[in-house]
Amino acid sequence: MNDDTNTAVPNARPVLDVRDFSVDLTAGKTISPIVDKVSFEVHEGRTLGIVGESGCGKSMLSLGIMKLVPSPPARIAGGQVLLDGTDLVPYSNGQMQEIRGNRISMIFQEPMTSLNPVYTVGYQIIEALRAHSSMTSAQARSRAIDLLRQVGISNPEKRVDEYPHRLSGGMRQRIVIAIALACNPRVLIADEPTTALDVTIQAQILDLMRSLKSESGTAIILISHDLGVIAEMADDVVVMYAGRIIEQAPVHSLFAAPSHPYTQGLLASIPTVDGDQERLQPIPGTVPPPHDRPDGCAFNPRCRFSDAKCRTERPPLEEKISGHKVACWHTDLGAQP
């Protein structure tokens, strides 16, 4: 977890302010929300972690902020994405091209496939640079070499002309990060950036992201299903379930007092070295698909506290203690995991 000096929420205007943001998915004639009225803020130099199981809408949310949801079948259904106070939702694709890779950039999960195999890594960095500035190709090339050095690639003058297939997964992810950082973005969205990497490489990449954040003040949205990564990197955490935020808190508060039964379940299913439990406790069942979400609280079929109210009424996301919001009818019960 981050040092305490960093966890106080700053009062300044957030870099990115997402309000009631929704994404719908059309399948045949049914339209179902895959991201349902999600709101959060990200501040300069801080990291927001977004956690949840596969299928909870994390990736669609991040693609939605970039307005890159595959459309059709998906569609941004409403809400606002305020970047430094300007709403991006009404932006045209042409206007978004100015934003993407320039003021908001993205790192993806699969370093093995997220680079184009037929172009050199240098070309792919230069392309991002020249899309958003009037650099000459010589200037862009020397900036690309600088970026490679900055993300910890040895011998960057030589590597700049390599094709992606000649580099390891960790190196490719560094290249992807270099591309994302090329234009000094205000916001960096990292969608499971370390999931496909070895543990040692994972640590290196996280280190790199941390040092880049402290150097540049970029706001980071870190999407992960790995609570260890979130605990280590994030300042604030959003827990998503079935397209909605069910718990939202500063990282310390979340790990110290997880209040939603789902968050508690997630924490209980992590193995601990010193834990005295014999077996891990998985959460029974799976995330319901978007077209088949239950009435009331979406988690109720898997929840051990669920009762009649949970099955009919959807709990609102409410602040229980300062800065710690939960969407559950039973937070008093849930407080004892």
Partner: peptide, 15 residues
């Protein structure tokens, strides 16, 4: 549909 095309779009390249 490939990941690298998504990367290209995320860089802000024109369609």
């Amino acid at each position: 549909k490939a990941d690298h095309v998504r990367t290209a779009r995320a860089k802000g390249l024109s369609e």
